[in-house]
Write a protein that binds this DNA or RNA. Structure first.
Lengths: 175, 175, 175, 175
DNA sequence: TATGAATGAGGCTTCATTCAT
DNA sequence: CATGAATGAAGCCTCATTCAT
């Protein structure tokens, strides 16, 4: 990937996260990337292609994030790490942009991207099983759902107390 | 409100929920409402005005939905009704559209509309207090967050088992 | 002419003078006249009809203005009155609007309305003849031209010293 | 400046002069320039930008016209050249369009653009001073005013005898 | 690889005008 | 006589995309 390709990708990433896919014009991307508009099309074919590249990038970043959870063997640690995942990333601006983008695109294009979380779900199920929860699948499912809610409020509700909620969650799950 | 105004509102409601606000052109709305495009602007000023009218409508519908919860006195019933709120509405198409619209707009415009849920939050806090939960505010907060997650998955993830999750939740909260 | 007709005419007069014919929408006229938009069309047929009515009105007002000059018999007085015509009207707001409208419409529609000034021209020629000017037609023509310039600058150039210029003119013509 | 930019400018120039600024739609300009409508906005931002470019162009042309007068040292020649300025340009179609545009825009937008003539005014004052006119400022002012009137009638009144009037003027000023 | 001029379709909005009440 | 809902054409502008250089 050339330097300009990366500049385009980064510009698009930031803009899609800020204003959404449809609302971001290719010319805005070009301007922010300090690149000619035509170059976007040379490299990514069309606007949709740019989006796909960004989604791809997101999946890779997600993989990295999830890897730490999936490779964990201690069940309590699995749950703890999962719960802390967002809070950890909420520190730096770049991560916030990452999550914002994930959810904005989810909603704008109505694609949930289940396969991304499937591996995590399995690990959570295993963890809850080992911890003798009665309905481990449902517990895992619930926790995943909760994470969507957490992200939603964290991103959209300025006043939301993310860290407090996460502390409370850790108490509840005793992790 | 004239008949055509209502047709415009309904068409916009459906289209905004389906495709989002920006992706829905005023001409599409006009066509679906079987109305001239100009009429939209006569009645709502501009596209933004149309959106506001729809948001307003949503708040009224939300009030109706919440009214049943807020007026409930039995704490267990409060929680039960709150949890069941989505599942009940998930039966008919119109309600699904309603929720979809709420969340799509939330994300597209990044406005959370906290005041809408504030009353519900107070009632939940009271309920958890009466049920002797140790941290009623945090419990209420968590349940509200969970609901956002539930809606997110219900709307975006085709395979999501809403009713199962709700049953499980009711067990957890013993309601 | 009914009261509402007059309100429409007055509103249109003011708006056409302020913003020009094309730039003034019938809806703006209706709003300013506190009248329904349809009424304009009932009374004046279409926007052009409204314009014609206003032009007509202008001609009548011009006739009144000119009458005083035309009926004057003393040649020196004729010239003096003609020169003072604008300065006199420049006192009250209504007259300024009148002149502004005349010129704005002239330029926007490129119609000079020569016949309006023809009578005045004749009287000026007669006056210059009696005063033994060598080329009375040319003198009259020049004075009329000067008046157009005077109006132009008075209306368009905020800093223009109308009264000073008029005084100077009167000296020149010894009137 | 690309070739198409110039075509746009020329088309707009002609149309604004013929029909005025507001009455000329950008699509008309595009059609006349044999260019896509979008290109106008790429090059000039918006319709107002196009107008500004044209006004700018006008100022440059005016500078050229005035340069000949300003650099003249013989007072009589200054006045002569000034008086002849319009008549000289009235020969070719392009110059007529130029003057028409200047005045149409003046009236439509109510901006007089005094600074353009300021230099000329100074030179005229100097000329009248040297020629021992008693009130050189007023004379200059009057002559400028007269020119506005001359242009007004020349452009708007089909039957106006421009050359005759100019001859007469030259006699009056003995130039 | 990279630019930016150029396009045409479509978006939001305004407008003159008509018509039922 | 008077209203104001309703229309359709047109206006300004943006956008994704293509192409010559």
């Amino acid at each position: 990937m050339t330097e300009k390709q990366e500049k385009i990708l980064n510009a698009a990433l930031a803009l899609f996260a800020e204003e959404g896919y449809r609302s971001t014009s290719t010319s805005k991307v070009a301007k922010r990337a300090e690149v000619s508009e035509g170059l976007i099309f040379r490299h990514f074919g069309n606007k949709e292609g740019l989006l796909q590249a960004i989604i791809q990038l997101g999946e890779e970043q997600a993989s990295v994030l999830f890897a730490d959870i999936i490779t964990e063997t201690d069940p309590r640690e699995v749950i703890k790490k999962f719960i802390e995942m967002i809070s950890k990333t909420s520190q730096d601006e770049e991560s916030i942009v990452f999550w914002k983008l994930q959810f904005k695109i989810k909603w704008e294009l109505e694609m949930y991207g289940e396969h991304k979380t499937e591996a995590v779900e399995q690990v959570l199920i295993k963890a809850f099983t080992e911890l003798r929860y009665l309905q481990p699948e449902k517990e895992a499912n619930l926790l995943l759902t909760l994470m969507d809610g957490l992200a939603t409020r964290f991103i959209l509700q300025k006043s939301f107390d993310l860290d407090g909620t996460i502390e409370f969650l850790k108490q509840k799950y005793k992790v």
